[in-house]
Computed example of a mutant assay.
Amino acid sequence: MPALQTTIGALSRRRRSPLPGLGLSLGITVTFVTLIVLVPLAGLFWQLAQLGPSDYLFIVSDPRTLAALRITITAAAAATLVNGTFGLILAWVIVRYRFRGRAALDALVDLPFALPTSVAGIALVALYSENGWIGSLLEPLGLQVAYAWTGIVIAMTFTSIPFAVRAIQPLIEELDPDEEAAARTLGASPAQTFLRVTMPQLLPGILTGTGLSFVRSLGEFGAVIFIAGNRPFETEVASLLVRIRLDEFDYPAASAIAGTLLGLSLILLVAINVAQTRIYRRLDGGA
């Protein structure tokens, strides 16, 4: 009995959490999430509730609003496509290869997280304007990046690339090399091995990374407004139009535009979660 009590006591000590008990920890968590996430969202929904369906459609169907949404969504989609492709390659190189400067490259991936977006926008303008290092080379070719749709795509790509890389990188680290070796032993080519063995296991991370990249790009403001030119119907993004409506004290219009972006983001995140669940079930041999 003393030995059993000693064992139970040891297990209890090991299971004791270094943080406060469930009640206090849960209370702190719920309070934090409420103040930081739910209260701002509740304010937005309250503003939207002041609008009737006809008022909302009138605001969203405004030609300037439609143009801003079109520019934002297409640029975000293009940036997401770039991030999904090169994010996968970058994550693969960081995980699978050892070379000088690998640690520095890995750290640079997180630079857009640490760099203020306004600083990033100024730097991109300095590079891609007509007098910039890269823009001066592109101008003779008739290619304009700064103050054009292409510049918006580059700004969104810069600010959202970490989401794609960091979502895919852990899955590459968890890949079993024996599965790839078995596929090659059975006669599969490198392309077949990657597409049929490796890619299905990376697909959940790719969906998460590209989805977060797209959502992040939809609401990008600081980096975009410096390089976009902000011309209505040409390079004006939805986040800037929200700011303009707020400056005009047109809170219903600002809420309608912001609510549209939020709705698109929520729909995409739900779709990604559903797709991930089905992929994991398929990988586990379920239905």
Rank of each mutant, 00 (worst) to 15 (best):
Leu81Thr: 04
Thr198Phe: 04
Thr185Leu: 14
Phe221Tyr: 02
Ile257Gln: 08
Arg100Met: 09
Thr208Ala: 13
Thr72Met: 14
Phe158Thr: 02
Arg14Asn: 02
Pro18Val: 02
Gly9Phe: 05
Leu207Phe: 07
Val37Leu: 15
Asp178Tyr: 05
Thr65Gln: 12
Val93Leu: 12
Phe226Asn: 06
Leu44Gly: 07
Ala155Asp: 04
Ser189Lys: 14
Arg196Gly: 12
Leu127Thr: 05
Phe86Ser: 06
Ala103Gly: 07
Gly151Gln: 10
Leu202Ser: 01
Gly43Ser: 04
Asp284Val: 03
Ser54Arg: 15
Gln192Pro: 07
Ala253Tyr: 10
Ile244His: 10
Leu264Arg: 08
Ala253Phe: 03
Val82Ile: 11
Glu174Gly: 07
Thr7Asp: 14
Ala76Asn: 10
Gly87Ala: 03
Pro140Asp: 02
Ala148Tyr: 10
Trp149Ile: 02
Ala254Glu: 06
Leu246Asp: 01
Tyr56Ile: 04
Gly87Ser: 11
Thr80Ile: 13
Arg16Asn: 11
Ala182Pro: 10
Arg102Gln: 09
Thr80Val: 09
Ala123Ser: 14
Gly263Leu: 15
Pro20Gly: 14
Ile225Pro: 07
Arg166Asp: 02
Leu22Lys: 13
Ala126Met: 08
Arg64Tyr: 00
Glu174Ile: 02
Ala120His: 05
Phe214Val: 00
Thr210Lys: 08
Ser255Gln: 12
Ile257Gly: 10
Phe194Trp: 13
Leu212Thr: 02
Ile225Leu: 15
Leu218Trp: 06
Val125Thr: 01
Ser239Trp: 03
Gln5Leu: 11
Ser136Thr: 05
Leu4Trp: 12
Arg243His: 00
Gly263Trp: 04
Ala114His: 10
Gly219Phe: 11
Thr31Asn: 12
Ser129Arg: 13
Leu26Pro: 13
Ala238Lys: 14
Ile225Trp: 03
Val39Ile: 14
Val109Trp: 12
Gly205Leu: 14
Phe221His: 07
Ala3Ser: 12
Arg16Ile: 03
Gln192Tyr: 05
Leu19Thr: 03
Gly222Gln: 11
Arg196Trp: 11
Gly187Lys: 11
Gln47Leu: 13
Thr80Arg: 06
Gly142Gln: 15
Leu26Asn: 08
Ala228Ser: 15
Gly23Phe: 12
Arg98Tyr: 01
Ala191Arg: 15
Leu108Glu: 02
Ala287Val: 12
Leu218Met: 15
Ile71Asp: 00
Pro200Tyr: 02
Leu24Gly: 04
Asn273Arg: 15
Ile172Trp: 01
Leu218Ala: 01
Glu139Met: 12
Asp62Arg: 09
Val125Lys: 08
Val153Ala: 09
Ile152Asp: 05
Leu212Phe: 05
Pro40Trp: 07
Leu143Met: 09
Leu186Thr: 01
Ala10His: 03
Arg102His: 05
Leu41Lys: 01
Leu51Met: 07
Ser118Pro: 14
Thr31Trp: 13
Ala188Arg: 13
Ala167Arg: 14
Val33Leu: 15
Glu220Trp: 04
Arg243Val: 04
Leu269Asn: 00
Val82Ala: 06
Ile161Ala: 00
Gln47Arg: 09
Val237Met: 13
Ser136Trp: 11
Leu111Thr: 02
Val197Trp: 07
Pro112Gln: 04
Arg102Val: 00
Arg16Trp: 06
Ala75His: 06
Gly84Asn: 06
Gln276Ala: 00
Phe194Asn: 06
Ile36Pro: 11
Leu141Ser: 05
